[in-house]
């Protein structure tokens, strides 16, 4: 398609302007508000007990969710890419479900299942608290991040085919040896990309976690929940900006890794 120079320039300006107004301006404003009173004020806001606890809580959830998603994601992706079994189509659909279901609905359904009056309510009565504490928040985060590893790894498995795995088998490699030496190295960039997406989503998840967390500062509040609580409940607008900046920083690290990994993945 031939596009005139003028059209090309105006299209480019339109796209950049759109991004600028919708993405860069809001994010820039938060950065500006965060640091307009100097670094000291920012530091005070992000080192309060509630803030430190929220950062720890967010990182803890990530640390629990990522390994679980990696294991589940790899097993599911391999089953989907290599297996021929009844219910394969159904599994494909179920994996995508978290993309379709609203996070708030996820939270509510978890309460119906694990809450005091839910199916597994007995656990709560026995003193094992799932809802309004860490296990519930982890369950909610697992639910919303479940598709990422599967959806990044499965196409790579299809692309590399099973020739290399079969060759390894004929050379004497047992299944687990083939997995460690052949399959895993072949899908490593896809897997890493899935992990980064999982981390980014786990840090940013709001709705599902809000419903099941109880949202108690210093106890069951993630960084994302803290931003919301400070802004809406505490009317501590500056504190919300500061916490947002920490969240944004973590997201930027994730974005940076994503860009690098995406390039690696395309090279591989």
């Amino acid at each position: 398609m031939v596009i005139s120079r003028a059209t090309r320039l105006s299209l480019r300006t339109l796209a950049l302007g759109y991004l600028f107004v919708l993405v860069m301006v809001p994010l820039g404003l938060i950065l500006f508000r965060t640091f307009e009173n100097g670094l000291g004020a920012f530091w005070d806001q992000v080192t309060t007990p509630a803030s430190i606890s929220a950062i720890q809580m967010s990182l803890l959830i990530v640390a629990i969710v990522v390994p679980l998603n990696v294991v589940f994601g790899l097993v599911t992706a391999i089953a989907l890419a290599r297996g021929r079994f009844p219910g394969r189509g159904l599994l494909q659909a179920v994996v995508d479900l978290p993309f379709a279901v609203s996070p708030v609905v996820v939270g509510v359904s978890l309460i119906l299942l694990w809450g005091v009056r839910g199916w597994f309510g007995g656990l709560a009565e026995a003193g094992i608290q799932i809802i309004f504490s860490l296990p519930g928040m982890v369950l909610a985060t697992i639910f919303v991040t479940l598709p990422f590893v599967v959806r990044e790894v499965e196409p790579v498995l299809h692309e590399i085919g099973d020739d290399q795995e079969e060759a390894a088998a004929t050379l004497g490699a047992k299944r687990w040896q083939t997995f460690w030496r052949i399959t895993l190295p072949s899908i490593r960039w896809g897997l890493a990309y899935g992990v980064v997406l999982t981390v980014a989503r786990a840090l940013g998840e709001f709705g599902a976690v809000l419903v099941v967390s109880g949202n108690v500062p210093g106890e069951s509040q993630t960084l994302t929940l803290l931003v919301h609580a400070r802004y809406i409940d505490d009317h501590n607008v500056f504190g919300a900006y500061a916490a947002s900046t920490v969240l944004m920083f973590l997201a930027l690290v994730a974005l940076f890794l994503m860009t690098i990994l995406n390039r690696k993945r395309e090279d591989a």
Binding site: D163, Q164, A169, T170
Partner: peptide
Amino acid sequence: VPPQKREIGFVFQHYAAFKH
């Protein structure tokens, strides 16, 4: 007998080279 224990060598049309 699984392929691991058949003492065979197998060569594939598209080489099946271990790329990494």
